[in-house]
Computed example of a mutant assay.
Amino acid sequence: MIDPTAPVRLARPSRDLRAAERFYVDGLGLAVLWRTTEHVPGEHDLLMVGPPGAAWHVELTHDPLRPTVPAPTVDDLFVVYLGGPVDEALVERLVAAGGSRVASHNPYWDAHGVTIADPDGYRLVLCSRTWP
């Protein structure tokens, strides 16, 4: 069995780490936890963002020599449970930081939150509900 407090990393490719950083740091308010941009052959450039001290973070990668084109689907979701109404100022900040407000493929998420596509097309859901 996996320890329920085990750290979690969600890793995704990005076309542009600067654009991703604007969205997740300037828009969503996460912190840069780690960054590498040394362009070492065979290594990826990395941007890790998340809340300081949390047991999870998002790792965004870019291989400058062999870039992977992000291929998100409408159900590739990163859901943040806010436990209350979605602040429209946060949505506006995310859009200003390069996101696009979109209708969710699953109407559940539109009924209980707001869905925003990041600059690579991956979807962030700001959910007004709590979990669990």
Rank of each mutant, 00 (worst) to 15 (best):
D118N: 04
S14N: 03
G27I: 09
P52I: 12
G53K: 08
W56L: 08
V49I: 08
V25L: 07
P70L: 03
D110C: 08
V69T: 12
E92Y: 08
W34L: 14
V114C: 01
H112F: 10
R129I: 15
D16E: 11
A117C: 13
R12C: 11
L28F: 12
P70W: 00
L65G: 09
V25S: 04
A89S: 15
T68N: 01
T115S: 07
R9H: 12
P107I: 14
A103P: 05
R101E: 12
E88Y: 06
A103Q: 11
I2C: 09
V69Y: 03
A89D: 12
T61I: 09
G84L: 07
S104I: 13
P132C: 15
V86F: 04
A19D: 07
T61P: 01
A31M: 11
V69D: 07
I2D: 09
L94D: 00
L124C: 10
A6G: 04
D118Q: 04
E59S: 10
H57V: 03
R93V: 15
L94T: 03
H57N: 06
D16W: 02
V58Y: 00
P72A: 12
P119D: 05
P72Q: 07
P4K: 08
T5D: 07
P4C: 14
G50T: 09
C127G: 06
Y81S: 03
V58D: 00
V74R: 02
E88T: 15
L126N: 01
P64A: 14
R15Y: 03
V91P: 06
A54R: 12
S100W: 12
V102C: 07
Y81E: 04
T73H: 10
A20R: 02
G121N: 02
G42P: 10
R101T: 13
L65F: 03
L90Y: 06
T130W: 10
L82G: 03
T37S: 13
R18C: 14
R93L: 15
M48Y: 14
G42D: 15
V25I: 15
D76H: 11
A6P: 04
R66N: 14
P107Y: 08
G98P: 02
D16K: 07
A19Q: 08
G99R: 00
L30K: 05
P72W: 06
P13Y: 00
D120R: 04
V95E: 00
F23C: 03
G83V: 02
R18W: 06
H57S: 07
P4W: 13
E92D: 14
L65V: 06
Y24N: 01
D63T: 05
D3T: 15
M1H: 13
S128A: 13
R15S: 13
G84S: 12
H105K: 08
E92F: 08
S100C: 14
L90M: 11
M1K: 11
T68A: 02
L82F: 09
R9T: 15
A20C: 12
F78N: 01
P7V: 15
T37H: 13
F23Y: 04
L46W: 11
R123D: 05
